[in-house]
Amino acid sequence: MDIPIKGLLYESDDQDGRHSHMLYITSWDGRAVHEHSFSGITSFDVGHSHEYAGVTAPAPSGVPHVHEYRAETTFNDGHTHFIHGTTSGCVDLPGGGHFHYFEGYTTVNGRHPHAHAYQGRTGNEL
């Protein structure tokens, strides 16, 4: 079964010598897709915390769904961490739209290897 997908493909101009592409999906099986912004602060561990922010991967509008997310934290105490995962299902907002919960643990990094917990909720759909 083929599912029609429409989107935009962007070629990166990374200065670090790596070549990559980003695909921005604008419709899935004829339905518009949407994304959510997210941000937060990790738990305070080993004397510091980190901030993070990003935009979820797109998902179809108007149907039960989840979003994938990933981001790199701020550079604190000489290192960064990565977060990634899948949001909860959508939680409807009284005035329209919806948000998703997310939570997890960062990757392990630092002079004294450690991870941080994080949790939050996305913004309304973009």
Score class of each variant (00 low, 15 high):
residue 1 M to V: 14
residue 1 M to K: 13
residue 2 D to G: 13
residue 2 D to T: 12
residue 8 L to H: 14
residue 8 L to I: 14
residue 9 L to F: 08
residue 14 D to S: 15
residue 15 Q to A: 09
residue 15 Q to P: 06
residue 16 D to Y: 09
residue 16 D to L: 11
residue 17 G to Y: 07
residue 18 R to W: 12
residue 19 H to N: 11
residue 19 H to P: 03
residue 20 S to G: 11
residue 21 H to G: 05
residue 22 M to F: 13
residue 23 L to Y: 10
residue 24 Y to Q: 12
residue 25 I to S: 01
residue 28 W to Q: 04
residue 29 D to I: 05
residue 30 G to P: 10
residue 31 R to Y: 02
residue 32 A to Q: 15
residue 32 A to Y: 09
residue 34 H to F: 09
residue 35 E to C: 12
residue 36 H to Y: 04
residue 37 S to A: 13
residue 38 F to M: 02
residue 38 F to Q: 01
residue 39 S to N: 14
residue 40 G to P: 03
residue 41 I to C: 10
residue 41 I to N: 11
residue 43 S to T: 07
residue 45 D to L: 10
residue 46 V to I: 13
residue 46 V to A: 15
residue 46 V to E: 15
residue 47 G to M: 06
residue 49 S to C: 12
residue 51 E to G: 12
residue 52 Y to I: 01
residue 53 A to N: 06
residue 53 A to S: 09
residue 54 G to I: 00
residue 55 V to C: 04
residue 57 A to Q: 13
residue 58 P to L: 01
residue 59 A to N: 05
residue 60 P to D: 04
residue 62 G to P: 01
residue 62 G to A: 04
residue 63 V to Y: 01
residue 67 H to W: 02
residue 68 E to P: 02
residue 69 Y to P: 11
residue 70 R to W: 12
residue 71 A to E: 08
residue 72 E to T: 11
residue 73 T to K: 05
residue 73 T to H: 03
residue 74 T to M: 11
residue 74 T to C: 08
residue 74 T to E: 13
residue 76 N to D: 15
residue 78 G to C: 02
residue 78 G to P: 05
residue 78 G to N: 04
residue 81 H to N: 07
residue 83 I to V: 04
residue 84 H to V: 03
residue 88 S to P: 04
residue 89 G to E: 08
residue 89 G to W: 03
residue 93 L to F: 10
residue 94 P to G: 04
residue 94 P to I: 00
residue 97 G to D: 03
residue 98 H to P: 01
residue 99 F to D: 09
residue 99 F to T: 14
residue 100 H to G: 01
residue 100 H to C: 02
residue 101 Y to E: 13
residue 103 E to N: 14
residue 103 E to Q: 14
residue 104 G to E: 03
residue 104 G to F: 02
residue 105 Y to M: 14
residue 105 Y to E: 15
residue 105 Y to W: 15
residue 107 T to G: 06
residue 108 V to W: 07
residue 110 G to Y: 06
residue 111 R to N: 12
residue 111 R to Y: 09
residue 114 H to P: 03
residue 115 A to W: 13
residue 116 H to T: 01
residue 118 Y to M: 00
residue 119 Q to F: 08
residue 121 R to M: 05
residue 121 R to I: 00
residue 122 T to P: 10
residue 122 T to D: 10
residue 122 T to A: 09
residue 125 E to Y: 10
residue 125 E to A: 14
residue 126 L to M: 11
